[in-house]
């Protein structure tokens, strides 16, 4: 498999003007171009990343981040880690459900627990908590109702 540096150069030549950065071995992609880059990664035969293994939402306190792990089942290669960042209030990230179907439930979970809105998702509603729940529990500033003892105590 090509190293992340080579993949970064390929994407920069194919989509001129995108600003990618490399952190460790993961690519940070700006959210505006994420949809097109995702289609490029899936459809080009020399990569053919056809298997989206995991979608995770993370809350760093200044920004929210979505982490994708991509594998290629045809070539038996991987993983490629991709991070997409967004702000905390109006967090909108393009959804990749039309490209990889496995993102459907995982993006709903990221919306439910971390509060990231995915534009273009066919059915974005809460999946693990009930419909009337009004907070996003996995954020760092979430406070529980009726706790017996403060959580940091131990």
């Amino acid at each position: 498999m090509k190293t992340p540096t080579e993949i970064k150069q390929d994407i920069e030549t194919k989509f001129p003007g995108t600003q990618l950065t490399l952190e460790g071995s993961s690519l940070v992609i700006p959210k505006e171009q994420w949809s097109e880059i995702a289609k490029f990664l899936k459809n080009t035969p020399e990569y053919s990343f056809d298997f989206l293994s995991s979608v995770t939402g993370v809350d760093y306190k200044e920004y929210l981040e979505v982490v994708y792990h991509l594998y290629s089942m045809e070539k038996k290669e991987g993983p490629l880690t991709i991070k997409v960042r967004t702000d905390c209030e109006q967090s909108l990230v393009p959804s990749v459900t039309p490209i990889w179907r496995s993102a459907e439930f995982q993006e709903r979970e990221a919306y439910d627990l971390v509060g990231i809105h995915f534009t273009g998702h066919p059915d974005l509603r809460r999946i693990l908590m009930w419909e009337g729940f009004q907070h996003h529990p996995l954020r760092k500033d979430y406070v529980q109702d009726e706790q017996d003892r403060p959580v940091e105590q131990f």
Partner: peptide
């Protein structure tokens, strides 16, 4: 019943 942040009554 389901409340906004827990059950009602607790």
């Amino acid at each position: 019943e389901f409340g906004p942040n827990g059950l009602n009554p607790p």
